[in-house]
Simulated scan of single mutants.
Amino acid sequence: MIIDINSDMGEGFGPYRIADDEALMSQVSSANVACGYHAGDPVIMDRTIRMALEHGVDLGAHVSFPDRMGFGRRKIDMDLDELQAHVLYQLGALGALAGRAGHRITHMNPHGALGNLASSDPAVAHAVARATLDFDPEIAFLVLPGSQLEQAALSMGGRAIRLFLADRGYLADGQLAPRSQAGAVIHDPEQVVARVMRVIRNQQIDTVDGQIIAMPVQSILVHSDTAGAVDLARRLRDGITAQGGTITPLSRQN
């Protein structure tokens, strides 16, 4: 069993920090770095890239709508050409800093409202995939299983990595439950670890309305701003290896 553990990182701004990225970096195999739109700035991006390189962690672009005040969780209406430009802009910024540090972007994972739309809206999914592959056709996509982004990426010859969000509730259609809905965010670490182990073992998950759906995944996401994220990532890592699993960065998975 080969599995990746990834986390969204670099989500501070200036002197403000939202998570202990330094400690978390030692527990994950891939990092999704904020590109300055919902969080992050050039200095934080540069520092996080270099930490990832030092720890042998894959570097991903965590692109979003330009919504720093709302942490990228608010939808911004824009035409698809404009959206592609915004995605490409963020990839270019992260890629430039990565190149100087001697690292490279291996994957992308859209954040917040953009991620939700890319998962459910075919047009948005196509725009995000097109911009990403125009930047680098080798970049993999972190996707919800069966999502529109997965379909768009594969239809363009891209590589899709199926992702499970450790502390988020799911709907019966495989989409994330809205944060306003009961059960959308799971706070009990014991419950989070148990459901991740079930996903890895049985490739199934209970939805917020009590249904059981298939959840075949290759990567587990631990949100860095979740309380106790470092300990949670460590417990997941220990649980996976105890079951004979191997924690492997996305770029080293077939």
Rank of each mutant, 00 (worst) to 15 (best):
S64I: 07
A131Y: 09
A96H: 04
A131C: 03
G95H: 02
R68Y: 10
M69N: 12
A96E: 03
I76D: 06
V124M: 11
P66K: 09
I76R: 08
M45R: 09
A93W: 01
P66V: 06
C35Y: 12
L117Q: 12
P122M: 04
D41C: 13
A39T: 00
L97Y: 04
R47H: 14
F164S: 13
D41K: 08
R168D: 11
L117N: 05
N109G: 12
R104H: 02
L117M: 04
F164M: 14
I76C: 00
I161L: 13
H126M: 14
A127N: 05
A140T: 04
D121G: 06
A85P: 15
L144K: 06
P122E: 00
G36A: 12
A129S: 03
A118W: 05
D58F: 00
M51Y: 05
I49D: 01
F71K: 02
A113M: 07
L83T: 05
L94K: 01
L88T: 10
L154W: 01
S120A: 14
M45K: 01
G102C: 02
L97K: 00
E54D: 13
A125Y: 07
A85F: 10
R168C: 14
C35V: 12
L165G: 11
G99D: 10
D67V: 03
N109D: 15
R47A: 15
I139K: 05
H86S: 06
P42D: 08
A123K: 11
V128L: 07
R47K: 13
